[in-house]
Amino acid sequence: MAAQAESGGATTDTYKEARTWLLMPAWLVLLVLSLAPVSMILIYSFLTKEFRGGVIWEFSLASYDQFFFDRGLFGDEAPQIEWTYITIFWRSIWQAGAATILSLIIGFPTAYFIATRSEKVRPIWVFLVTIPYWVNLLIRTVSMKFLLRDQGPLNDFLLSIGLIDSPIHIVNTNFAVQLGLFYSYLPFMVLPIYASVERYNFALSEAAADLYATKWVTLRRILLPAVKPGVIAGCILVFVPSLGSFLAPDLLGGAKNFMIGSLIEEQFKGNAGNWPFGAAASMILLTMVLIILIVFARRQAKAEKREG
């Protein structure tokens, strides 16, 4: 027995050691692919811009100053709040939020539908949902522009059935951008919700119906709270990339519907770029996203405490 206990102790040590080594890839990924890039952007945002792109290694707050303040053409006037970028930011949040809500409205019933099919056909439905996403995002977004344009199939169809008299202008509107974002990230909404609805105990819905709850009340008071983690995950997964997206706003939104992703993209593209300014805008975007998520999580925790 004693010998066994000893060897048992040895095994535990081996496990500990093994665990340290086995976790290394995870730490490495976090360090190399997440912390290091963010740190680089943070550093770059405080550097001075080089005119043909790139940076001069000299500390400067100029990028942040440029983002928030207007000091006139030559930089010698009294600082005023610069609304250009804040407006772009605000529009981005609004567009990403609308795309998220659109995804939720379409994605939730889709996920529910798939999760309530028989076990055999569920993987087929999931597969079907993901198929369009095997095509490159750029191609999908360009195709969407062709579908939506004034002489495109959508307008042709609506004209032919007599629903409209003249083509509706969808391309180069906010709505087109929302549609594009919605279509870009829909599976990120469907899949987490599907996963949580699939795990949902449908006897709970039966119990609610048995206790005189209508379908709507059952959805609101029993199903939704149970699948909330999936819904939240889906919303974050759609909202965050939508916020920084530049393909859909560029291709579908036109110049008037500029979003933060395009702004950042431009700073790094070609000779007109300003790397520190792009890095600063990225950091501001990152901070905003974090603040939104933290506020949301706090409110969530509070609501749960209240219920409990």
């Binding site: 105990n201 006897a203 709970l204 039966e206 119990a207 609610a208 048995d210 206790l211 029993i222 709270p225 149970a226 219920e307």
Partner: peptide, 13 residues
């Protein structure tokens, strides 16, 4: 009519 379910189906939240 009301039902007592096999695995109770109490609302967990």
């Amino acid at each position: 009519v009301n039902t007592v379910f096999q695995n109770y189906a109490l609302f967990p939240h």
